[in-house]
Design a protein around this nucleic acid. Structure first.
Length: 336
DNA sequence: GATGAGCGG
């Protein structure tokens, strides 16, 4: 079909319009005259056809057929690989596991992971879920790559957001709102629990927490759900044995050993390797320059047991490591 | 020569 809207040519223009407008709106305005777009397929070969009609520049109606090949579903490809994996021979402990067993297992193996974006975090005992075929899937792994890609951005916006949020929280707290109530001393609007000036002082904290516990156990005993669904760990439940005084709720910051004169390519796993021989290590930290991403040449190792820390200091201070002489001392408690 | 990051009801 040829649609000619020019005056005098026989066909009537749709309405009284000016030439300019007609030129511009051509096509769009007349689309309703065209047959609808059709999509056929994709068929079993993945062939998909799209048939659509348009006016070309000359005002002629044209039929456009687009044929495309659609990729097969990713799911199908994955499952094919998965099937292949199932034929792999077992190894390790899984050798003794029943062939038909498809249960996942928890590995108790200690696995160290380096996490460049979370230098302060240290997973000493990482629990991995493994299949009977001993294929290890780290739960964190897949997201890790993506996180790193956008890490610069994320860190920037995140820190700003949280700073703003913290400020507003503090503001609200000062205004007498219910927010920011210290769980240790009960003081409102002054500090978070972790910053409590009384956190190492037994009398206040115990008095407060006993009061808390009493109300919670009362709520539980009365048959209702506990207030605000607060979980009370067994060690803190009424009647549980608790170590006396300040030993109780001090954060796991003690037995902190400062290690200086590290070579710049010493990473946390290296430090952990070095120090774990003295006993269980609760945390390893290597100071990283945020701008350059390079090691600042010092770090900290926290031991679970004080005696182990002492032995590590005695043995490793002055120890030649990676072409430098290590300095290993007790760390002075961090300010703030 | 040097003493850590960031989270939150």
């Amino acid at each position: 079909m040829v649609f000619d809207s020019r005056p005098g040519s026989g066909s009537k223009p749709p309405s009284k319009v000016r030439w300019g407008e007609l030129e511009e709106d051509d096509g769009e305005d007349l689309d309703f005259l065209l047959p609808p777009r059709q999509v056929i397929g994709p068929d079993e070969n993945g062939i998909k056809k799209v048939i659509e009609y348009k006016f070309n520049d000359d005002g002629n109606k044209v039929k456009i057929t687009t044929t495309t090949r659609v990729r097969k579903l990713a799911k199908a490809r994955l499952s094919k690989r998965a099937v292949e994996r199932r034929s792999w021979p077992k190894f390790g402990d899984a050798v003794h596991v029943d062939v038909g067993a498809r249960l996942t297992m928890v590995s108790t193996e200690e696995i160290l992971l380096e996490r460049p974006r979370a230098p302060g975090e240290w997973a000493t005992h990482l629990v991995l879920v493994t299949s009977p075929l001993n294929m290890i899937r780290c739960r964190d792994d897949q997201s890790a790559a993506r996180r790193d890609e956008s890490a610069t951005n994320c860190l920037g916006t995140k820190s700003e957001e949280s700073k703003a949020a913290g400020d507003s929280l503090a503001q609200l707290g000062k205004g007498g709102a219910v927010l920011m109530v210290c769980r240790t001393c009960g003081k409102k609007g002054d500090h978070w629990t972790s910053r409590c000036p009384y956190k190492d002082l037994a009398p206040q904290s115990e008095a407060f927490s006993d009061k808390l516990l009493a109300s919670e156990t009362a709520a539980a005993a009365s048959g209702g759900t506990t207030t605000k669904g607060a979980y009370v760990p067994p060690s803190l439940r009424a009647g549980a044995e608790r170590p006396a005084g300040s030993e109780m709720r001090r954060r796991n910051e003690e037995n902190s050993v400062r290690v200086t004169n590290l070579s710049e390519d010493t990473r946390e796993p290296d430090l952990h390797e070095l120090f774990r021989t003295f006993g269980p290590v609760s945390r390893v930290y290597v100071a990283i320059d945020q701008k350059t991403g390079m090691s600042r040449g010092f770090g900290f190792v926290n031991f679970v047991n004080k005696e182990d820390a002492e032995r590590a200091i005695a043995k490793l201070n002055g120890y030649g490591y990676d072409n430098l002489i290590l300095r290993v001392e007790w760390a002075t408690p961090r300010v703030n």
